[in-house]
């Protein structure tokens, strides 16, 4: 009764994606709901402009899926929960970076209710899921938009909790491209307590050819308004073997990247976060290098 309560709103429960899209387009301030973890919380907190219509996807059949494999690529449907992804052997075996990232989310309640796509669409710069997905070059397929070219996960956000998505957009699925050659990755984060939001997230994904790093993705979250790729660090790895000096140089480059602009907040300090970018990137690269060496 005196807990935070939801403001009044209309709930629309379409049974097809087309109806959902139509509902979103035809009403006033609309919001889309999958798991509702972030949406309901925001609404209870009484944000400045709460939606008057909530369109839930939960009654649309066939949206809860995880399909594909490492070589052919992965598709994650709008109602696939974080827990589904954590328990998926396809993800665990074929996309271990994503598996590691979702395993770091320690609230079973959040994982069970929350969806992967919902988590990504919130656009928080501390998202474990989005950090991993960027390292996997994931893309978002939007209904009725960019039919030819899905939106790269790296281009989703423009600021903390600000995305390029329109209120009328529905993500039909997230796709992760298949990988032919060998790749090795790792995901690491730092939190105050295990179920807390991360104070720093790091994912790396290295593509190896003949013992040399052909391409690299080094993704860092919670130290800038958006999750970003440390491009100078990535550049420093290309064409090189994964020796300690190379890894150290890449880690320093990530730490000193001009995009690395952490802040002081209730979870940590700017200086600690900056220092930890170097440590975590190095550790993630070392973990990937160890896997590469063992292969």
């Amino acid at each position: 009764m005196l807990y935070r309560t939801l403001p009044e709103f209309d709930l629309v429960e379409p049974t097809t994606l087309q109806d959902a899209a139509a509902a979103l387009a035809s009403r006033g301030r609309t919001a889309i709901m999958a798991g509702g973890i972030s949406l309901l919380d925001d609404m209870k907190r009484g944000g400045a402009d709460p939606p008057d219509t909530v369109v839930t996807l939960r009654h649309i059949p066939g949206l809860r899926y995880i399909e594909g494999d490492r070589v052919g690529g992965l598709k994650i449907g709008p109602l696939a929960t974080i827990r589904d992804v954590e328990l998926s052997s396809t993800v665990r075996d074929g996309f271990p970076i994503l598996h590691q990232a979702v395993s770091k989310i320690r609230s079973v309640q959040v994982k069970t209710m929350g969806t992967i796509i919902g988590n990504v669409c919130v656009g928080t710069p501390a998202s474990d899921v989005l950090t991993a997905l960027i390292a996997l070059d994931a893309r978002l397929r939007l209904i009725g938009r960019n039919s030819g070219s899905p939106l790269p996960a790296i281009s989703l956000c423009k600021g903390p909790k600000l995305t390029h998505l329109e209120p009328t957009d529905i993500v039909e699925h997230i796709e992760i491209p298949g990988v032919q050659g060998p790749s090795y990755g790792a995901y690491i984060n730092l939190t105050r307590t295990l179920p807390d939001i991360a104070k720093l997230t790091v994912a790396v994904n290295l593509f190896m050819e003949d013992g040399v790093c052909a391409d690299a993705r080094i993704v860092v979250g919670a130290v800038a308004p958006i999750i970003f790729r440390a491009s100078a660090a990535e550049d420093s790895l290309r064409g090189r073997g994964l020796d300690h000096e190379t890894i150290d140089r890449a880690a320093v480059a990530a730490r000193d990247d001009p995009t690395t602009t952490p802040i002081d907040d209730i979870r940590s300090t700017a200086s600690y976060r900056r220092g930890m970018v170097g440590v975590l990137v190095r550790r993630a690269l070392e973990a990937a290098a160890t896997k590469a060496a063992a292969a």
Binding site: R106, R192, T193, L194, P195, I197, I266
Partner: peptide, 16 residues
């Protein structure tokens, strides 16, 4: 108090 909820003020949970 900036830490005015259990999302901001963390106490130990069973997994910790």
């Amino acid at each position: 108090m900036l830490t005015d909820g259990f999302d901001k003020y963390k106490i130990m949970s069973s997994v910790d």
